[in-house]
Design a protein around this nucleic acid. Structure first.
Lengths: 171, 171
DNA sequence: AAAAGAGCAGAATATTATTCTAGTATTGTA
DNA sequence: TACAATACTAGAATAATATTCTGCTCTTTT
């Protein structure tokens, strides 16, 4: 007998998030260590539905990770550089090899395949300019099949958040 | 009587992180909801020092935030665009006004002041191309003093992490 | 109208965070 | 070398929280 496509099939079906789920996510995004009780108090619900909804969103993958974010300047990662990279050849094998290497470089915290004249955009963090120079010369430029590389330096951080805001479509 | 510049002055002085602190940070970065007990077991220490070290790093600002990260595609924020912006005028007043506006736009999750021909780089998330079009035309382009805008679309995410890796200087 | 499913409240239990007490190194100093 | 101050640690006690369980209510479907 087929089950209805509803929330309990969270591991298979696309989870449909209602207003309460989104409200919970707003609070969790701000503080991953907020207690179920605090959420339930703010939302005027008991702890049971909050707990169930969170577990459901964890299981469905809506909640990807509870992460701890550090102050880069206080852990000697104060320099941020945006790197543009183009490859010489664009066959599958060359691409896979490049991706593997990127994953092994801890200085690269983000890498995107992008539109435009370059193939990839990298966000790189390092302790200082010397460390970045070492990364650029000895690691990035050494990757086989590497074409052009262009570095754009981050002078200041204006805004930096992971909070996704959802339109308030109240019932 | 002057106190020594040591760890207990965490709120004022620069906190010096030792190997154990960095080891704790590695675990916390991966999972903000890891228990003190789990950390203490992995590090072969009791819960007390782990707890104290964490509180110290929270107070000193090394730990900036416990954040919950969401799957963008599952919360209708699947499109990511990198926006380059240059302003017409570069006086203080114009810059401040621009920054204020950027902070009010929830689609902009990152904004950096950068070197090169553009003034700012923005990371923008939206539900789809229609939503991005609306953002571009009705919000971004409407900012006063706006000069050139160039959009680079993210085709694929190769790597995305917040895990900062620290060199293993054992001792 | 009956039945099933979903969401919820409240209580009970299991875990965990937090605090407290006191022992053990380590470092600097006379 | 001996002493004192400091930091670190283990283990226990307490407070707070997560998690589970039971049963009620509302809605939807047939």
């Amino acid at each position: 007998m087929a089950k209805s496509i509803k929330k309990e099939d969270s591991s298979i079906e696309q989870l449909i998030l209602d207003t309460k789920d989104l409200e919970i996510l707003q609070l969790l995004q701000k503080n991953a260590r907020i207690t179920v009780k605090e959420i339930s108090d703010q939302m005027h619900l008991s702890t049971t539905p909050i707990h169930e909804r969170i577990k459901r969103m964890e299981a469905s993958g809506v909640i990807k990770q509870y992460a701890t974010l550090l102050d880069h300047t206080k852990v000697k990662k104060g320099l941020m550089v945006i790197c543009y990279v183009s490859l010489k050849e664009h066959n599958k094998k060359a691409g896979v090899k490049f991706i593997e290497t990127i994953h092994s470089l801890h200085e690269v915290i983000e890498c995107y395949n992008i539109s435009g004249e370059f193939d990839f955009m990298l966000k790189v963090v390092a302790e200082d300019m010397n460390a970045y120079y070492d990364f650029h010369v000895n690691k990035l430029s050494q990757i086989e099949n590497m074409g052009h590389v262009q570095s754009v330096f981050v002078i200041g951080i204006i805004k930096q958040t992971h909070q996704l805001v959802f339109p308030v479509s109240e019932k």
